[in-house]
């Protein structure tokens, strides 16, 4: 028996919005410690890694490890039927071919149940090595989304350049060029408003705008985003998911001319 109950059901709705444009389907690996999902987009340019710890749920039970292959378009349709203040429970029998979503209104007056067929997915799992990154940049997630959106007007790529002075985002195309520099902030009232740059070595890498913009669908999950970069390795874009876990997007760089 697998059962995971989340009083703050809106978090699950936001997680779905954050992955459904990038992935058509994905396996949810449910284990005693929590739920993991790792999947590449169709083009294998990016990878999504989602981690929801058991401690973050209001009730969590997983007697045996189960892998639930889900069509994310279908799952998204179902989660759209949940109100933002609904309590969401996911449950499945040990060797079931369906998963059930239960939505309870806060006053328990309305209870909706949706059963969805599971899929057998044969997805390639990649081993993500532990990496010490040269540059770790924390910035407000809304600011990052704004920068990606604004620079998308200029070209297909965004160059992210991190030095000890701060971080620079640039794009170039037919209409001209754009450069946005963010300096490390001094003291701020709220920690989430800060721009913090932790740099060992300066790094400059080029990434696809299209994917960066898809990652920013996770913005409602967290006021802050963390970018980790090292030369010639994928960028990591991480959003915390409340007290439950995190979503990490890995994006392979564009290399050469």
């Amino acid at each position: 028996m697998f059962e995971a109950r989340l009083v703050q059901g809106s978090l699950l709705k936001k997680v779905m919005e954050a992955i459904k444009d990038l992935l058509n389907e994905a396996s949810f690996d449910c284990a005693h410690s929590g739920i993991l999902l790792q999947a590449m987009d169709n083009s294998h340019v990016s990878l999504v890694s989602l981690n929801l710890r058991k401690e973050g749920f209001d009730k969590y039970r997983c007697d045996r490890n189960i892998v639930m292959g889900m069509n994310l378009t279908s799952m998204s349709k179902i989660l759209k039927c949940a109100s933002n203040d609904d309590i969401i429970t996911m449950k499945a029998q040990d060797s079931a071919d369906t998963v059930t979503f239960v939505f309870e209104s806060p006053n328990q007056e309305k209870v909706s149940e949706y059963e969805m067929k599971l899929m057998n997915l044969d997805q390639d799992q990649l081993g993500i090595p532990e990496t010490e990154y040269c540059c770790i940049i924390k910035l407000p997630s809304g600011e990052f989304a704004r920068i990606c959106r604004d620079l998308s007007q200029f070209g297909e790529s965004i160059v992210i350049s991190c030095t000890k002075e701060g971080v620079k985002f640039s794009a170039a195309g037919d209409i001209g060029t754009a450069n946005i520099k963010l300096a490390q902030t001094g003291t701020v009232d709220k920690e989430e408003d800060a721009v913090i740059v932790d740099m060992q070595e300066p790094v400059t890498l080029t990434f696809s705008c299209k994917y960066l913009n898809m990652f920013t669908k996770a913005t409602p999950l967290s006021p802050q985003v963390c970018l980790s970069m090292s030369p010639d390795v994928p960028l990591v874009v991480e959003y915390k998911i409340g007290e439950i876990g995190h979503i990490r997007y890995y994006l392979a760089p564009r290399i050469g001319d």
Binding site: M40, S43, H44, V45, S46, L47, D124, Q125, L126, G127, I128, P129, G155, E156, S157, T206, S208, V233, P234, Y250, A252, P253, R254, I255, G256, D257
Partner: peptide, 14 residues
């Protein structure tokens, strides 16, 4: 604007 690399170039099979 460069060659788009793929994830397999960096991360091997688990």
């Amino acid at each position: 604007q460069g060659t788009q690399m793929r994830m397999e170039s960096f991360f091997g099979a688990a």
